[in-house]
Design a protein around this nucleic acid. Structure first.
Lengths: 150, 150
DNA sequence: TATAAATCCGAGTTTATTACTAGGAATTAA
DNA sequence: TTAATTCCTAGTAATAAACTCGGATTTATA
């Protein structure tokens, strides 16, 4: 039950945009290069993010993308849900899905509901800003550790 | 990020076996019929469950399967992990997976680790016995509700 | 105003995974 | 001995994931 590249690449893109927040638009090509991903593929991912109000775009030369809101106002869950849909482990838990005929009798569904809830708790509690902070923490720690070894 | 049929059908099978616990072996055909699933497909799922010590089999006529342990000693997580592998949302979190080259710098990985942990907490806290109890609760509630309406 | 750098859009392709089916050997109760 | 069952492996069909490609549109800038 692995997150598809949509969610994973999408999070990487958004992290990149968060790191660049306040510094103007960033082109898809730049994002793709930094993350070693295909820019033609990323197009398909950034489009829904834009349509859902998470990023703004500027067309034309020197154009690009930037976060539509400050990084602390965008949760990992916002990104994931746009690109992957809900992370529920079974269709019967999804809101828009018609209940399966034996919903009342289905004890596995209770399990799926609990899993869904716990996943949502995590992804809605972590913002892009948190990830940026983690990024710098990891980076600094690593740099320090490396120089200590030398 | 939906659980595949392996995990979902597997849980249904194990719930069926848990409901039948202590009443002798149950044939795959019976399980499949009760759950309206293909018995030839379920063969592929029960085989690893047996090899991992979750069910015992009796071959030959009148044979079948039964839980290898009481339902309260088998967690949903045991079943899911045998059939789906770990529920981690990205490969980099798996134990046996080599770390990705930028593990130290990767802020998305921290997110995946938290998701994994929260899923594991849920699936390892719910036993087949809990699901059996839920099954009867749902069933009774529903029967009562139905008769009240009539 | 021409050009190049971008976003935007949809159709198509390739690859991988999922979800099975089929056939037959081995086992065992009746 | 027969019928019911597990066990095993190979194959196939269907679906989804992961992209590529071509071209239209927009816009800064030389």
């Amino acid at each position: 039950m692995i997150l598809s590249t949509r969610g994973r690449y999408g999070l990487k893109m958004m992290l990149e945009l968060a790191l660049n927040y306040g510094k103007g638009a960033m082109s898809l090509k730049d994002i793709a290069n930094k993350q070693s991903l295909s820019d033609t593929y990323l197009e398909h991912l950034i489009s829904p993010l834009r349509k859902n109000g998470l990023v703004n775009s500027t067309r034309g030369a020197q154009g690009g993308y930037e976060l539509a809101k400050p990084p602390n106002e965008i949760k990992a869950g916002d990104v994931i849900r746009v690109l992957e849909g809900s992370l529920a482990p079974a269709k019967c838990v999804l809101e828009d899905e018609p209940e399966c005929s034996n919903a009342d009798y289905c004890a596995t569904r209770l399990l799926y509901e609990k899993i869904t809830e716990s996943i949502n708790n995590v992804i809605d509690s972590i913002s892009l800003q948190d990830m940026v902070d983690d990024y710098y923490t990891l980076n600094n720690t690593n740099v320090k550790r490396r120089s200590e070894n030398e």
